[in-house]
């Protein structure tokens, strides 16, 4: 009875027993694999991954392109997000409405619609022909709206008492920004921003719609030649997980690191 509690339930301290964690992890993974395996058997598919070896160079290029697009978008979207968060609180009504409408529009519409709209209408009209650049701009505009909200939320959660204390100890505005506001803002936004980076990586797959040869587009091209959808998309999922899982661990670690906030 005691052993069963230890192995299958969350312990009193709210955590899992180490052995129980391993056992249940294996069980859950086993269940996923079994369901998948049975489904494949039911439709008579036998997986054969050998052919992928011929395409490894293209897959590597696509994989690398995804990383490049995501990294560039992270930087640009961060800049847009900071600008927009500041703009949303601007005393100038024009600036305030500009950024608020931008955030509402982007968050309220699907990315795929924005990709078509920007690339084929705005992009064509303004002569943005480089697909990499267009992809990064579109993705950054999209993610920037979410980052803007993350930063705005953190700014709003900064307590007035902290700013008053900064004035009381005699800090100038610049010192308050540097020693009080920025460190607290970073602590609050960093875990969420890291999580957003994982979203950027996943969302970059939609840029395949405008034929940016990133990972998803590469896999689509390969399947178009040999029709081995299952193997290709399984591999695609694994490759995305290789990128997003470590990021989610980093995000969790950062959350623990800045726990004093809670």
């Amino acid at each position: 009875m005691k052993l069963r509690r230890k192995l299958f339930f969350v312990q009193e301290n709210g955590k899992a027993n180490r052995l129980g964690a391993c056992l249940n992890f294996v069980l859950v993974m086993g269940l996923f694999v079994a369901v998948f395996w049975l489904s494949l058997g039911a439709i008579n598919v036998h997986l054969e991954f050998g052919f992928l070896g011929r395409f490894w160079l293209r897959i590597w290029d696509g994989f690398w392109m995804t990383i490049e697009i995501s990294a560039a978008s992270l930087i640009l979207s961060l800049l847009i997000g900071i600008l927009s968060a500041a703009g949303c609180g601007s005393p100038l009504l024009f600036v305030r409405y500009f950024f608020r409408i931008y955030v509402k529009f982007i968050r309220g519409t699907p990315l795929i619609m924005q990709i078509y709209l920007f690339f084929y209408i705005v992009g064509t009209a303004w002569g943005v022909e480089n697909r990499f650049a267009a992809g990064v701009i579109i993705l950054s505009t999209f993610e920037g709206a979410y980052i803007s909200e993350i930063i705005r939320g953190s700014l709003l959660s900064l307590e007035e008492s902290q700013l008053e204390a900064a004035r009381a100890v005699g800090f100038t505005r610049r010192q308050t920004l540097r020693y009080v506001i920025l460190p607290q803002l970073v602590a609050r936004t960093l875990p969420a921003l890291t999580g957003q980076f994982a979203s950027i990586i996943k969302d970059s797959s939609l840029l395949s719609m405008i034929a940016v040869i990133e990972l998803t587009q590469t896999i689509r091209e390969i399947t178009a030649v040999n029709f081995r959808m299952f193997e290709c998309y399984l591999l695609l999922g694994m490759l995305y997980l290789c990128l997003t899982l470590p990021i989610s661990f980093v995000s969790k670690w950062l959350e623990r690191r800045f726990q004093y906030e809670n």
Binding site: E159, S161, Q162, E164, A165, A166, R167, A168, V169, G170, Y179, V180, P183, Q184, A187, Y260, E261
Partner: peptide
């Protein structure tokens, strides 16, 4: 002027980070 004074608040006056 503030630099010459010391101020203690009811609560939450310490920098949390």
């Amino acid at each position: 002027y503030r630099q010459g004074l010391g101020f203690v608040f009811q609560q939450g006056g310490l920098f949390r980070h």
